[in-house]
Design a protein around this nucleic acid. Structure first.
Length: 470
DNA sequence: TCTGGGGTCCTCCCACTA
DNA sequence: TCTGTAGTGGGAGGACCC
């Protein structure tokens, strides 16, 4: 049987490249996309910024120290999504077997496309040219017999960082044209074993620290350990997996239809909060956003999880599965607030202060009835057991005037809310507690994707970059 | 010195049940 | 009826990825 041909396509400095496309005045400048405030993080940066040592996931304060003249952009999740769609349309011209990893990255299985489109290197080169022609963006492509090898090859195919000299290809890889690196099956072990162990997917700082106790530095070192030793070092599933990978055995398929397993929102606050009433309002905001996305994806959820990170960076999660799958923001918020109000959590909140709060849902089910906001109801709605109007507290935490006996069919209410949002957008309607003098504090996906940004968001005018300079 | 947001997967523990 | 055990599922947390 012929070896598989897998491509790993990775857009180069994706978010930063999109911003440069939008504003050519940024060409050749150190551009950073991320949250510029104290608690922000670098999401992406141009190669000019990388020359200063800036990397993705670096804290914004560190990035500021390394490159004070950098141009910061807080990012536009929607815009990146649009470009990502265009890139995926290019993928679809090559093969239906596409496994998206992120907005800027995907695996493609082109084994079956060879007869029609040529050898994998030609497919990779043509695809790279096509993406550039359609979007104006540049990508790197790794070609290999497995996902692991293709992924590592795409890293080898990345352009050099200015001032750091030409990138040297690892042994076993060859260049298949500009931005394309190829590893053939007979060379995969040579290629793989030359990498540091940390390059393997699944080896992060903690696992690496454990492996170092066994003298492991490279993938070759890892391959020299027995499976039993690896299992002792890092646990059962992880140990077996690493044993196979380090020996070049990776038959994981490119999965075209990997479904979403959970939906959530979280946010790091500019300052820590230790008042339950303030956090309750944030829960309503997050739950409303989660509910909007659940409804858009035509799913309901069985489990609601509350996540809190305290000032000392201790992270806790509390979750609750409900008997009836839910879509409603009111229900999600009610469950999350009940989790927040558990005694041990309240005492942690008051003692420590909370820097991050998140609400997510999992155990997703397809909605059987496609009408907006329809709960999958086989028994009385859970929300009937909860205090709907507990949400309707003002900022001073005093309930609005409403007779306690008022009966409201919450399912009808949710349907009505869903239908308004479908017609006028998610920001058209929100729980009353989110109302401020400046309008509704509605959470949208990607709002604070990389942490908060400093005030006065940058506006870039053509030929006159006036982004905030830090 | 500093640590975001949105995810997935795995492990461990515990309660429940047969 | 009581006890031990194995399987299962929920909950919590750790580690990792981009």
């Amino acid at each position: 049987m012929a070896a598989r041909a897998i491509l790993h396509v990775d857009m180069d400095a994706f978010y930063a490249a999109v911003e440069v496309l939008q504003n050519p005045a940024l060409i050749g400048k150190p551009v950073i996309v991320g949250g510029s405030a104290e608690r922000g993080v670098v999401a992406s940066c141009s190669y000019e910024a990388r020359a200063f040592g800036i990397k993705s996931a670096m804290s914004s304060s560190q990035a500021r120290r390394l490159c004070p003249q950098a141009i910061w952009i807080s990012g536009n999740h929607g815009l990146y999504g649009e470009y990502s769609e265009k890139v995926h349309e290019c993928f679809a011209e090559v093969t239906p077997l596409i496994e998206p990893i992120a907005l800027d990255e995907a695996f493609l299985d082109v084994t079956g496309a060879r007869r029609l489109l040529g050898d994998p290197v030609k497919i990779a080169t043509d695809l790279r040219n096509r993406i550039r022609e359609v979007t104006g963006l540049v990508c790197s492509v790794g070609v290999g017999p497995s996902k692991l090898i293709a992924k590592l090859a795409s890293v080898a195919a990345k352009p050099p960082i200015p001032g750091k000299g030409e990138r040297v290809l690892p042994p076993g890889a060859r260049r298949g044209g500009e931005g394309v690196a190829v590893v053939v099956p007979s060379e995969q072990l040579t290629f793989l074993h030359s990498h540091p162990a940390r390059a393997l997917w699944g080896i992060g700082p903690q696992t690496m620290a454990r492996l170092e106790r066994y003298g492991v530095k490279t993938v070759a070192d890892l391959a020299s350990l027995s499976e039993d030793t690896l299992i002792r070092a890092v646990g059962n599933a992880h140990g077996r997996h690493l044993h196979l990978l380090s020996n070049g055995i990776d038959d994981r398929a490119v999965e075209a239809d990997r479904g979403v397993k959970s939906i959530g929102h979280e946010e790091t606050f500019g300052t820590d909060h230790s008042e339950v009433s303030v956090l309750s309002i944030e829960i309503v905001r997050m739950a409303d956003a989660v509910s909007n996305r659940l409804r858009d994806s035509k799913r309901s959820a069985k489990t609601i999880t509350l996540k809190l990170k305290f000032s000392d960076f201790r992270l806790i999660t509390r979750s609750k599965s409900v008997p009836v799958p839910v879509t409603s923001g009111v229900t999600i918020a009610s469950v999350a607030k009940a989790l927040l109000n558990e005694a041990d959590v309240v005492s942690l909140v008051r003692d420590q202060g909370v820097r991050l709060l998140g609400v997510s849902v999992s155990g997703l089910l397809e909605l059987t009835d496609q009408s907006p906001g329809r709960e999958v109801l086989t028994e009385p709605p859970l929300v009937d057991q909860l205090d709907l109007f507990a949400d309707m507290t003002s900022l001073d935490n005093k309930p609005h005037d409403r007779p306690p006996s008022t009966a409201v069919n919450t399912v009808d209410l949710d349907r009505a809310v869903a239908s308004v949002k479908e017609r006028f957008g998610d920001a058209a309607l929100a729980p009353a507690v989110l109302a401020t003098s400046d309008g509704l504090r509605v959470k949208r996906r990607g709002d604070t994707q990389w942490g908060q940004s400093l005030p006065e968001p940058p506006t870039v005018l053509p030929n006159e970059p006036n982004n905030e300079r830090i």
